[in-house]
Design a protein around this nucleic acid. Structure first.
Lengths: 138, 138
DNA sequence: ATAGCTGCAAATGCTTTGCAAGGCC
DNA sequence: GGCCTTGCAAAGCATTTGCAGCTAT
């Protein structure tokens, strides 16, 4: 079956029950049809939109990133107290982060192993475990 | 030997080669003389200053937190893309974080063990490893 | 004296919000 | 039509910066 333009992007959006608007289709396409995992900020995605010749307002990009995250299409990664990163790879994995360059890189899931997780403080449960390995180029 | 007020706070500052100004002495005292590890934001520290009856401008608090961090007296912890946390415990350890409440808690160093750290991407070296365990109260 | 420090206010950077106009079902 | 979405501009926060005045040495 031939893949029509936006076919995958459309499906992704419909699968989570969002309306396939022009803006969401484009963002979905930019995010999920490149066949690799990657990391975006609202700003970087906005630039990609402009490079594609289209136009989506920054506000809508913020809204959409959050909707996609809430729907489980994206995962937010906190590595910088001042900028939000989103990861198209929502599976269980960790990250390298180069603070100087602001660049994130996935660590394959099986390359970090945690032993002996501590018990959560009483009255609370453990949600997610994030491992961030700071790196720097030399 | 009796401990004069600010004796410890003064020493801490002199040890890293900073001028013991009124502001730095107070902040040092608030941060390091309570005999336990804790986590502050510029805002929370500012409030503590005011509760103590003194006054230090927010700008100076930001400056001082960064100077102290650069001097190794504090460690910055990134758990929120929008607010900077600082930890008076600079030793090797990890954190619980309740995103809803914005509360950080230390995990004793020996209660998390990482096995099989991945190799850093070529051309880079590993700096710090941060493990953040998201928790939520129930 | 002088190099360093402080505080105010203004500026910055990222993100969110209010609301009128437009689009999808 | 009615509800969801978008986009702009304005507002919001946390943080940084410029610079005149103050302070430790």
């Amino acid at each position: 079956m031939t893949k029509r333009p936006y076919a995958q992007a459309l499906k992704v959006i419909q699968d989570v029950g969002l309306r396939p608007t022009r803006q969401r289709l484009l963002l979905s396409k930019l995010l999920f049809e490149r066949g690799e995992d990657w990391h975006v900020t609202a700003e970087s995605l906005h630039e990609d939109v402009q490079k594609s010749g289209a136009k989506v307002s920054l506000a809508t990009i913020y809204n959409t990133l959050h909707q996609f995250t809430k729907s489980g299409l994206l995962r937010e990664i906190v590595v910088d107290s001042g900028k939000a990163y989103f990861d198209t790879n929502t599976s269980d994995h960790h990250h390298f982060y180069d603070a100087r360059l602001g660049v994130l890189e996935d660590i394959p899931h099986d390359e970090v192993t945690l032993v002996s997780l501590p018990a959560a403080p009483k009255g609370s449960r453990i949600g997610r475990v994030d491992v961030i390995i700071q790196i720097e180029k030399f």
